[in-house]
Structure formats: C-alpha cells, structure tokens
Design a protein around this nucleic acid. Structure first.
Lengths: 199, 199, 199, 199
DNA sequence: GATGAATGAGTCTTCATTCAT
DNA sequence: TATGAATGAAGACTCATTCAT
C-alpha cells in the first residue's frame, strides 16, 4: 500500500463499474440487466459472459469494495506505529476518505445487504465486522493507554463506523466542504465520542 | 402529545403496515403488489381500492413516518422549556427512541429515497430537513448560551441525525442493549460531538 | 361410464387442449409458452392465470389423459362379467380405441416422461403401472381358466400395452384403416400373444 | 458383417456419442449445444468445427443408427438362406438385439422425428420404411410358403417393428431379463402375430 | 368493497451461432 | 482445432395495473 490516504481510480472491471452506477441510482432490484449491459457498452449475453448472474455482479462489487476498504484501513493502522491514538485517528481518517472516494461502492454495499444471497451476505458481514473490530481494538488500546475514556468500545466502534458510512450519502466532491474539511470534522467527532483526553 | 418518550402502536392503516414490512424486507422494487396485498390480507384490486398505486403506498408510508417523527421531536423540544441543553438532549433522545420504536419506518424512509417519485421525494426531503433544522437550532442556541462549543452546527446536526438513523439498522428489541441503554449512550455521543461543557 | 367404447370430446380445459396440440407437434421443450398461449387465444399472463407453470400444464394434461384411460378400461373390464377372455378382449379393445381417439394425449404422455418433474413422473408411472396390472391380471385369470397359455403374463401385458400405445403414432382417422379394423387386428395380435386357445 | 447377433461399441464419433446421451436424457430441444460440447469434452466452437449445427448432429446420429440397423438386419436376413420362417425369425431377433444394444440410438431416432428438418426426417422415414419392408417381405414369403397365415402383412410388420422399438424404452442390461430372454419372448410374440403354423 | 380474469411490458437468463485470435 | 468474447432472438415467468362482475 503506497499511501492509504489516496484513492485513485478503483480497480473494478468495466462491467462492474457500470453496474455500480446503476445499482447506486436505482437499487439492486430497480436495476435491470439490460440497463447494466447498456451502461457497460455490452449486449446482455455479453454481460453474462463475464458474470454468471445479477447476484454475482453484486457479490463481486461488494467484495471488491470491502476488500479495498480493509486493505486501506489496515495500512492506515499499520502506518501509525505504536501510538493507539494515532492508530485510531488514521483508521477514522481512512474510513472517512474511503466513503468520500468510493461513495457508490459504500452506499451500495451497505444498502443492498437485504438483496444479497445468504452466502454473499455472510461474506459481506464478515468483512464489515472485521472493519468494526479494527476500530474497536484501536479504541481498547487507547483506553488501556489512558488516551481514551470510552466505556463501551464496541458500541462506539459501531457508531463511528456508521457515521463514516453516512458520509457517502451526502458528500459530493466539489460541494461546500473539501475532503479535508470532512476528515477534520469527523476526526473531531470520533475523538469526542471515545473521550479522547488530549487535544 | 401526551408523552413524546412513548411510541405505541403506529397509526398506519393495515395495508400500509403490511406494505411497510414487505418494503423493509425486500425494498421497494423488490416488493410486488401481490406480496403486499397478500400480507395485508387483501386481493390485489382490493389493495388498489385503498391506494392508487405502489408509489402512493410508499408516499403515504413515508409521510406518516416522518410526520410522526416531527410531531414527537417537536413535543420533545417544547417539553424542554428554556434550557437549550435540555432541548438538545430531548430531541436526541426522541430521535433515538423513534428509530428504535419505528425501525422499519425509518429504514424504509431513508433507504427508498431513490425509489420515490420526484414530488414524493421532495416532500420527504423537506420533512427531513425540518428535522435537521430543529437539531441545528438547538445546537446554535446551546452555543449561544455557552453550553456547547460546536463550531459547525449544521454539520454536527447532520452527523447526529445520521447516527440516530443508523440505530434502526442494528437495534433489536430484546437484544443485549435496552432502549434506555441506547438512549444513554447516544446522548453521550451527541453531547460529546457538540462539545457540551457540563458533565 | 355410459359406454366405454365411445370417446367423445375430451374434457380438457381450452388452454390444456391448446397445449396438447403444441406439445404433440413440437415436444415439451420445443413448445414455447407464447405458442401455447397463442393457440389458446390467451395472452401469456392470461395462461399463467390458469396454470402455474409450463410443467403444471404438462402434469394436468398427462393426468387427465391417464385418468380417462383408466376409467374407460376399468369400465371395459367391468362390462365383461365373469369371462376372463372377454375381460381381456374388452381391455385391449378399449386401449386400442383410446389410443386412436386420444392420439395426442397418449403420445405426449408416453413421449414426455423425461420432461416431467420427478413427482409428476412418479404419478404418471403409477397410473401406467395400474393400467399394465389390469392387463396382467386379465391374462393371469385367462391362464387360470385355461383360456390362455401365456407363460409370462407380466411381459405379455407390457408388450400388448406397448403395441396399443404405438397405434397413436401412426393411426389417422380417415386413413386406410377404420378404427374397427385396427381394433380387430390388434385383438388378433393380442390373443395370439397370450396363446388364446379358442379360435 | 461378421456376426449380425453381435453389437460391439458403436462407431459414433466421440461428439456424436456425447450428443446421443444428452438427446436421450433431455430430448433434442431440451439439449443445449453447450451441454453437448461439455459432454464431448470440447469447446462450443470446437463442436461446431465438427458439425455445422445442432440439426446436423441429430441428422448424423440418426442416420448412423438407422444405417447400422439396416446393415445388421440385412445380414440377418441374408444369413437365413432360403427359409422364409428363418429369415423372419432372424430379422426379428436382430431387431430385438439392436434395440437392446442401441437403446439410446433407437429411442432418439424414433422420438425426435418431430425435431428433424424436413429432409432429415424424409431420409429417416425412408430408412425406417426400408426396415419395415424387409419384415413385410419376409412375412409375405412365409405366407406364400405356407409357414404363416397372416392376413395383413403390412400391418403385422408395423406392429412387430413397433414392438421391437418399444423394447428400448424399458430394457436395461443387468435387469431381470437377459437379452436372450427378451429375444426368445419377442420371437414368440412375432411368430404368434403372423400365425406361424409350426411350433 | 371484493374478486376472477386479463394484459402489455418487462423481468432474468439461456439459446444456437459466429468470429477474431 | 481450441479459445474467449460476443450477439439477436427467444426462453419461462412476473410486473403493476385494470375492468367487468
């Protein structure tokens, strides 16, 4: 991972990128294979040549998004060295940046859980839980180090994750707030939520 | 409003309640009129007798949910008298309770924005904005009164609203946390986010 | 049963009768729902209003055919009184007449076994076996009575049934042979096959 | 023809053999080129390299089957020398053996007539008629020689052919009856049907 | 109000077939 | 020959909606 703060072009295949846009705009059930194929510049069977089913597209999409999120946040955590407070801050910053850079990915992943087949959903949940556990561990470490006063790390981790996820549903690049603004404010919220003693 | 902390049975008509469950489980586009009619114990034309279209059902549903939320939070605000801190706390508590008592309502309203016809969506957004403005105003009043140190009331209001909305997607009655637990913790998060100066 | 020798108009519903023709001409897999609906004078969903699936159509069709065959042959057997030879002859005659009057029914039923879902197939086989057992019992009775010399009643019953079934694939009303011709000849074959001792 | 009683491995090309199995199990329209290619261990265009179309596969298959049947029965007839009764018996035996040794071939050929393109069907029918004529001629010769008393040789030929064909739909090697059993019984039926005067 | 019957347009998916490599 | 990629047409089936009764 060169730089966990950077999110360049995602590595989705063209059909997946097309599907992502359509899913984001219309939802899984509101998106037709025809529309997706058109958006991808493919015929319908051409799309099926690459993906077995609509559900397989969703699965590939969600997995790619979650995997990228996990890789980046893991790098962010790693990058913090031994300081729990920095580790926590890096993770939150990374999450916030991810949800701005990958708005649609995050939105679709969190919104279409109910449209996933059981095994796809299970996989997604395990990835989401891994993410949440990373935050939780960082909070616990901070509490142990005396940096945070948080009483319910698990609950706080979920709340902070939710907060970052929700960025995806309102943030627009070029809007009134820059990405750095959003990061700064959410770092502030997150630190406050875990009762950070410094600052 | 007798007691804004209480949310009894909602006042949805039976067909609307049935539709709510189906929308929550499958999404608007994933729900068929047939399934809704069945869940409502009506024939398909019977359902159409009550509502002009699937979209009208969604509109009625979302409006009822948002109206109830607004009525309750307004009562909660009113109930606080002159204290900005209490007003803020009451609103947050009310929001949290609403999103636990009306999980499906809140979830469908926030999740199906993209499925709403333009005018329905506009109406929904105006209700949501009214809600957010209430929080924002309370924060500003608290800042003016010296109770909060928040620098970006609008942003904080959105964050706090998002946090409360997200409760609906994980809270389950009978789960490990009681409603009072959830309220207490979220009050804590919300106060921390606006930099409440008192304990 | 008024007269087991008579086969009037079958009692298939119009959609079933339409489907029968299409199945007979193109086979189950070669028949499209569209074609069936068109033949029935219905729209596609109109057809689905009456039958849940293509398979359900096949099932209803085959069951109706087999049931009619069983009812008629049972009446034919009944009609013979105590004479085993007459009972045998009546059954064979009835079978032959059925396969001329209900050519398509019989052809589809016997030809599309591989296209039937397991439970549909099981039901069909049980009906076919019941038919075969009727013949077998008649042969055994004839042997016991000294009318027949047949050594393998089960095998003979199957052969005779097959012979009657095959009539459906070549007989055409208005062709060179009358139904009575066909009956007479097949009665001859069947008697010969069981070693009938009388003339 | 070394020995018309023996049917070793058929001489189908591997793709044809694969197609035969698939056609037998699912029918022509129920079989997809993809399934056939897979069963043949070929890619789809690989299969098309060998056969121009699905229909060409069916045509080649059916022709091979019918040709083998004709060659064998001709040899069986030839082998009988001057005795009409023996000639008849040899043909019947050969037909019975063919329908046991080449179950799928015979089943597909007789069952998929309706799926054949007109010229393919015409060719198949001419082969089938040639077969029937062989039997018919044998019967006539037997009648002329005073061996048989059959009154309708053409009809009897068709019935006997049908009876042999039907063996393919129930006989299983390793089942309760050996091939020799089946031959013996069907020789008995056939002789009875033509009114053979000797034992 | 409820019901049985109906439908045009759409759903996801697969078909047989082709072509550049 | 084999392969990966592609496609127009069609497959079975369901959609939201309507209407006579």
């Amino acid at each position: 991972m060169d730089n966990w703060r950077e999110f360049g072009t995602d590595e989705l295949t063209p059909p997946l990128r097309a599907a992502l846009g359509v899913f984001a705009r219309h939802g899984y059930h509101g998106a037709s294979i025809r529309t997706i194929a058109e958006a991808a510049g493919l015929s319908v069977p051409g799309l099926y040549h690459h993906y077995r089913s609509k559900q397989a597209i969703l699965a590939a999409l969600v997995d790619a998004a979650m995997a990228e999120m996990l890789t980046h946040t893991a790098a962010a955590a790693e990058d913090a060295g031994d300081s729990p407070a920095t580790r926590f801050a890096n993770i939150v910053e990374c999450l916030a940046r991810f949800h701005m850079a990958r708005r649609d990915h995050a939105f679709v992943a969190s919104t279409e859980m109910r449209s996933m087949d059981p095994d796809v959903r299970a996989h997604h949940i395990s990835q989401r839980d891994a993410q949440q556990t990373m935050i939780e561990d960082a909070i616990r470490a901070g509490v142990d180090a005396g940096d945070f006063t948080c009483r319910h790390p698990e609950d706080a981790a979920r709340a902070i994750a939710s907060l970052c996820v929700s960025i995806a549903s309102w943030y627009r690049p070029g809007g009134p707030l820059t990405a750095d603004d959003v990061v700064a404010r959410h770092l502030g919220y997150a630190r406050a939520m875990v009762g950070a003693t410094e600052a």
